[in-house]
Structure formats: structure tokens, C-alpha cells
């Protein structure tokens, strides 16, 4: 049986490639590369400096270990941590208490424009400066110490919580609000029974997140004199007392991780109605996949 082989079809020039070159993206990458070269030049990053840094790092780490907080260092560590905690508690309470009305005022679906825009302006101003910069202003106004730190963290909390709270309120289901309004309820009742139940669980999330964030910042604002462990840390750093720096850092990280575990428990308690046993079972489960999940879960943070 012989049959001339069918003429193989001429390979046509491909009219459409599966993954065509994306020229705008390619140009973007080239521009980015040019920028990186320029910026690295601007920052005076040289290989020699980098290599010298690696040497310094070894010396630096060598002086940090073992961490040391003996004698009166332990005392000043405890005082600083205590003050950081006080700042966190008071600032979180005040910040959340103030964020509720401000967030409500900034929600466009509940309030007229002349209320919304001043509230949004206030939120924008509180958000745009880092807590440490705000702390500088408060240190000037009310002097060194914890009260300046509280002021700075309250401003930071207002910026974060009220913005997200306002956005959460804008996303609520209007039907429940209309239903409550139709009964002739007052404005306060509409907010209490129509709005707040819908946003409560999200608000709780923002509040616990802000607690964590305040805890982190309360350990830093001391650098500019606004109270807390940060002042002790910066002083130790400037004295080249690196083993004490290391001890303070360990204490700060332990505190922050404890705060994260606590706030994850509070979230579970209120949003999933978890009991203590259930929560422990999830965290410290016994079967192999449970143990693995627990180990991974312990690593979850903000």
C-alpha cells in the first residue's frame, strides 16, 4: 500500500501567541532598573561599606549576647515596661472611645455632607503623621513623660480605627436601618439597633488590632521622650550597653507576642463564641494535623 504521504501542512506563522510580550510592563521594569541604579548611587551604597558592615555585625552581635539585665538594670526594665503597658491601656480606651463618634460622623450613608467632611479631614490629618512625630509635638506641649505618649497614641488610634469603622458602616445592609427607622425610632436607637449590631464584630477586630499596634508603638515613643520602655532602650543603645539592649528587645518581643495571643483569644471569644476548652483544643491539639496547625497558628500575627 503505497500512498504518497499527505503533504504536511505548512506551519503557519502564528497569528496569536499564548503569552504575548507586554510592552508597558517591560518598559516599566526597565525604568525601575534605571531608578534602582540611580537611587543606590544616591544612597552611597558601596560594596566596601557593605563588607565592612558584615564585620561590624559580627562584633555587634557578639556584644549583644549574652543579654544582661542584672542589678538595677532589671529595675529600670520593669519600670519602663510598666509605663508602656499603662500608656497602651489608657490610650487604647480613649482612642476607641473617641473613634466611635468620629467614625460614625465620617460615614456617608448616615450623615450629611457638612458633618462627613470635617470628620474625614480630622481622620486624614491624624493618619498622615507617624506616632513618633505626633509624640514629638505632644512632648513639646505637655512635657516629657507618659502623658505625651498617651496623646500620641490616641491620635494614632483615631486615625486608624475611625477610618476603618466609617468604611465598615458604609458597607452595612440598609434594610435593617430602614426597618428600625420605619418604627419611628430616634436616631440613637437607629444607630444602636440598626447599625452597631452589623459592624460590631468588625469593630472588635479593629479594636484588638489597634491594641496590638498601640502596644508596639508604646515601646517606641520613648525614643523621643514620650514615656515607656523606648526611652530606656535608646539610652542603653547610646551608652553602647548592647547586652542590656538585647535584654530589652527580648522583653519587648515577648510582650508583643503575649498581646497578640490575648487579642486573638478575645476575637475568638466574641466573634466565634469559642469556649476556653475549644480555643485550647485548637491551639494545642493532639492529633498530628492538629499539632501542625497549632504550631503554624502560633506563628500567625498581625
Amino acid at each position: 500500500m503505497h500512498q504518497s504521504p499527505a503533504p504536511s501542512p505548512q506551519p503557519r506563522a502564528p497569528t496569536h501567541r499564548a503569552f504575548p510580550t507586554h510592552w508597558p510592563a517591560r518598559i516599566g521594569w526597565i525604568l525601575l532598573a534605571i531608578y534602582v541604579v540611580w537611587a543606590v548611587g544616591q544612597l552611597d551604597v558601596t560594596w566596601a561599606r557593605f563588607a565592612a558592615g558584615i564585620d561590624n555585625a559580627a562584633k555587634f552581635l557578639g556584644r549583644m549576647f549574652p543579654p544582661d539585665a542584672g542589678g538595677d538594670k532589671w529595675e529600670s526594665l520593669l519600670i519602663g515596661m510598666k509605663e508602656s503597658l499603662q500608656i497602651t491601656f489608657i490610650a487604647t480606651l480613649l482612642g476607641i472611645a473617641l473613634s466611635l463618634p468620629i467614625g460614625l460622623m465620617a460615614a456617608r450613608n448616615l450623615m450629611p455632607a457638612w458633618v462627613v467632611w470635617p470628620a474625614r479631614g480630622l481622620i486624614a490629618v491624624s493618619r498622615s503623621f507617624h506616632e513618633v512625630v505626633v509624640a514629638i509635638i505632644f512632648v513639646k506641649a505637655v512635657g516629657f513623660g507618659a502623658i505625651a505618649g498617651i496623646g500620641a497614641l490616641v491620635i494614632g488610634s483615631i486615625g486608624f480605627v475611625s477610618k476603618l469603622f466609617a468604611e465598615a458602616i458604609e458597607e452595612i445592609n440598609p434594610k435593617q436601618v430602614e426597618a428600625i427607622r420605619a418604627t419611628g425610632a430616634s436616631f440613637m436607637s437607629v444607630v444602636l439597633f440598626g447599625v452597631l449590631p452589623q459592624v460590631f464584630s468588625r469593630f472588635l477586630g479593629f479594636a484588638t488590632y489597634q491594641f496590638d499596634s498601640n502596644l508596639r508603638h508604646s515601646t517606641m515613643i520613648g525614643i523621643v521622650g514620650a514615656g515607656g520602655i523606648g526611652g530606656t532602650l535608646f539610652a542603653a543603645f547610646q551608652r553602647f550597653d548592647y547586652d542590656f539592649v538585647c535584654a530589652i528587645l527580648i522583653a519587648i518581643i515577648a510582650l508583643i507576642m503575649l498581646g497578640e495571643v490575648l487579642s486573638s483569644f478575645v476575637r475568638a471569644l466574641f466573634t466565634e463564641n469559642l469556649s476556653v476548652i475549644e480555643w485550647f483544643r485548637r491551639r494545642f491539639g493532639q492529633t498530628e494535623p492538629e499539632r501542625r496547625d497549632r504550631a503554624l497558628g502560633a506563628m500567625e500575627g498581625s
Binding site: L43, D44, R49, F50, G53, I54, N56, A57, F60, Y242
Partner: peptide, 9 residues
């Protein structure tokens, strides 16, 4: 700063 010294790096 302890490693590279003060500055942008």
C-alpha cells in the same frame, strides 16, 4: 546603625 553606621543604608 550598629552594623553600617548612621546613614541611609
Amino acid at each position: 546603625i550598629g552594623i553600617f553606621g548612621p546613614g541611609a543604608l
